[in-house]
Design a protein around this nucleic acid. Structure first.
Lengths: 236, 236
DNA sequence: CGAACACTTCGGCGGCCGCCGAACCATCAC
DNA sequence: GTGATGGTTCGGCGGCCGCCGAAGTGTTCG
């Protein structure tokens, strides 16, 4: 009676890819949606280059990462949005700051910058992401009470804001992503990605530091206030 | 510069709980939403009782399982719907039948019963779950093109069918859950759970075997046809 | 061309962890 | 009470896996 579920070994293997502190650190770092070189990740994780090389091999073989070789560099990024979502979901399961408290001033300010606004793979998160999601909901451009979807008015809003949405993608147009600093859902999916890309392209916000944190510019404050009625207070 | 993300160790620990074949088999078995005894799980996984006891200890300590002691039995079930979703998401990432092919007739027919209809923690999946989700969508009770949410008409349908929806829960009313046999989303969340419970209570379907598979009764066929226009063909 | 650099491969070391059986403890049946 | 059953604890064994440094491959730069 060892009728063990046939997908158990594979589930274990998949989880095993994430079940290593160094690989987990890589995946979290790659949640910024960009491609990192092997060396950058090795320094980030505080481990020898040779060690990290083996980790990348496993993650790529397991389908979690996509690689792109350029000259003597090996660039690596999350394979697709599904993998990003998976890592986010796992991280969200942990709950907010169950981690250690920041020890240094530098860490603390980096933490608060992340809490203020950051990218979550390809969309916006943190107080910035929440403020936008909230504003969309209040204006009935997004409905959250019977699920999570854009309204017809919401489609119109994106259109009039000049943000194109790819409606042919198999990826959901709007999806809720649980924010691990705010404990509330923010907008992800095709619409979330398009909005984030537009915000960066139009200079509404800029990346700060080398990680995921972003900062709203003064042009961004004007645009958010004008288009969604978001006041500076909500972005504090 | 070992500025490793502070949540990396925890992410690794969480994944590590799932990254064992025996524990993975337990979690998959518990996806039927019911409580199993330690002994049942040990036999299911094909491992000594002492070994399984240790596994359960870890899963409970890690918050993935909830336990309930009754007399000399230790009943254990998934801690909540979030954990179930997490396991489902991980399993969905694997893709359909990447596992081995069934070897015996018994396995094969069990597999097709599972493909025809099954529970996915607390909602319906398989061709049955897809047929229902599809019918709800065609009748514009559920919208999938701008996200995933019940429409106003959908709320009315649940009401007139006598299926109460708890709108006070923090859990989303409607949520998409990727079906790993059909590769398409089916209805989960509060509405999915209420529908599944009603289907079992009203005798629309009954559990078969000791696992997740369910079978539509003739009363169920009538009800589904009447309420949602689902023909027997869709349930093949 | 040679030096610096990014990455990979390979041995080898050490620790962690899943497994079992045996002993133990609790509950239930008689 | 005695015996059977479900579960837990404990040692101890074995394998897996992450780590490193050293040596090797390919690329870029002067």
């Amino acid at each position: 009676m060892t009728g063990k579920d046939p997908q158990a070994p594979q589930l274990a293997r998949l989880a095993g890819l994430i079940a290593d502190e160094t690989r987990a650190a890589c995946l979290l770092a790659l949640l910024d949606g960009r491609a990192w070189t092997a060396g950058e990740l090795a320094r980030h994780a505080g481990v020898a280059a040779s060690t990290l090389s083996e980790h990348l091999g496993k993650l790529v073989a397991g389908g979690l990462l996509a690689e792109e070789r350029q000259g003597r560099h090996r660039y690596v990024r999350l394979a697709d949005a599904r993998v990003a979502q998976l890592v986010e979901d796992l991280a969200a399961q942990l709950g907010p700051d169950t981690g250690r408290r920041p020890r240094t001033l530098r860490e603390s300010s980096a933490g608060s910058a992340m809490a203020r606004g950051r990218t979550c793979y390809d969309h916006l998160a943190g107080r910035l992401g929440i403020a936008i999601t909230e504003a969309l909901t209040v204006r009935e451009l997004l409905t959250q009470d019977t699920g999570f979807a854009l309204t017809d008015a919401g489609l119109g809003w994106f259109d009039s804001a000049g943000i194109a949405l790819d409606r042919t993608s198999r990826r959901p147009l709007a999806r809720a992503c649980l924010d691990w600093t705010e404990r509330r859902p923010h907008l992800a999916g095709v619409a979330g990605a398009a909005l984030c890309r537009h915000a960066l392209d139009a200079g509404w916000c800029v990346r700060i530091g080398s990680e995921r944190a972003v900062k709203v510019t003064s042009a961004g404050e004007r645009a958010l206030s004008e288009l969604l009625g978001i006041g500076a207070a909500a972005l504090g």
